[in-house]
Design a binder for these strands. Structure first.
Lengths: 199, 199
DNA sequence: AAAAAGTTAGTGAATATTCACTAGCTTTAT
DNA sequence: ATAAAGCTAGTGAATATTCACTAACTTTTT
């Protein structure tokens, strides 16, 4: 809920943690590796975070806030829902293309083991997306731009699922292919499949 | 590729590993816990498997083979693709409802850390699904039952993505809600959205 | 001067794995 | 038939390594 407003050093640690995640996966994210990436001793990490859990939660919360801001900026009420939806996904695509490590963070459940706080943080991120996507889908349906064959919530679920799977494939492929290209392709596919039957 | 045909004891170990996964998550799957679940010493595990990695790979390969068999049985060429698709997802649903731990196994990447073999085994499972789903979608399109607004591969991607996300939500909710109900709902939604425009 | 941020050098707990050894069953040799 | 040899599946102890985390001291910043 609250925004503890992280220090610049904390932000560097978050970035370093992200870099490790994308390079070595969840298992590689240890205090030792984090300290090495930062170029100082393990114990120094604890000057900035109480625990490893706190590092991960801070990272996820930063990501949530980042998404929140980006979505707020990119969605323009004067535009039509289709264009907004497109813009939202493109924005996500551009962000993840530049910060692949966050893909590991969001789509990883190895992170949440045992930790209720991390679990909650991941759910928060999903909620942020849901909260911005759902109104767009809903509006699109009301304006007759999207099919109303199924409820807006369920349509949103399908959108998010397809997007998540694309990200997962990118990650498993070790970020080797061009996610922007594949992503654009997916977006246009999703918009096509959302079209209502009668024009 | 090959099928090493596991022993009965190995099968028991795989089952025990699954039970641990669903109870304690990926982090709980240790040799110690596995041995405890089996009721014998840690070292005895190594009579049956060379390593922990081998246990996990065996479990995933068993799952792949299991899916393969189920899909082969459930898909009937004489039925129409829509019904077959429905049957496939229902079959998956029923299986996962009875073996929730495998959801953890397939959708978890905590498992695949560093291990190339485990990574490959997970991809194999996804391939099995793809291999059976794609022909159904393709046939449906050819018969005019499904929309051909987008290629069969991409439609399959969307189906799998939506299904995966549903499973993920179930898992994050700690298997608390009725996956069959939600799953049925999703299936009917997917079929609706796949309908071609002109009847 | 004092607070903030770093260091070295540890802690205990957990991890997967290996070791030498054994009870009980089955196969083989005499 | 029976003794010898081998096999299967266990045991408990010990291994090295890694983990998150801490105490006490020193450097740097303000």
């Amino acid at each position: 809920m609250s925004s503890p407003s992280i220090s610049s050093r904390q932000f560097e640690l978050i970035e370093a943690a992200g870099k490790i995640l994308s390079k070595s996966g969840v298992g590689g994210l240890t205090i030792k590796n984090l300290a090495k990436e930062m170029g100082f001793a393990e114990s120094a990490v604890y000057r900035h975070f109480d625990s490893k859990e706190a590092v991960v939660v801070a990272m996820l919360d930063y990501l949530a806030k980042n998404i929140e801001e980006r979505l707020r900026q990119v969605i323009r009420p004067q535009k039509n829902p289709g264009e907004n939806l497109k813009a939202v996904f493109q924005n996500h695509l551009a962000f993840f293309a530049g910060h692949p490590h966050f893909v590991v963070a969001v789509f990883s459940d190895g992170l949440m083991e045992e930790s209720e706080k991390i679990n909650a943080a991941i759910l928060r991120i999903m909620q942020v997306n849901q909260n911005h996507l759902l109104p767009l889908v809903s509006q699109g349906q009301q304006q007759g731009l999207f099919t109303d064959a199924i409820p807006a919530e369920d349509l949103t679920h399908i959108l998010m699922g397809a997007f998540r799977l694309q990200m997962f494939k990118w990650r498993v492929a070790q970020f080797q292919f061009d996610i922007s290209e594949k992503g654009e392709h997916l977006i246009s596919n999703l918009l096509k499949i959302m079209q209502p039957c009668k024009n």
